[in-house]
Amino acid sequence: MSFVNDLRIIHKDQAPKLAIALLGVIAIISIYIVGYDQGQLFSLVQGNQAYDAMWIHEFTHDIRHAAGFPCH
């Protein structure tokens, strides 16, 4: 019985690696959208036109300034 308990206790202390990785990926994508995109993301579907429109940049523009990120 103690063997089973040991296993479970080890399991308890384990950091949820998969969840951490998933949150890490989400954090990187969302900070890229808010803080950095200058049209690159939409250019994947829209082509070069996206760099002129910069949809994401316009949407995130005000919070980008307010959160201290460099902007135009």
């Binding site: 950091a15 969302s30 959208i33 808010v34 523009h61 005000d62």
Partner: peptide, 25 residues
Amino acid sequence: QKEGTFVAGAFLGVTYGAVLGIVYV
């Protein structure tokens, strides 16, 4: 830009929420 601020604010929050969660755990 003004309406987008709310969407963008949520994204910004998600970023730092995820960072806080990772470090916290």
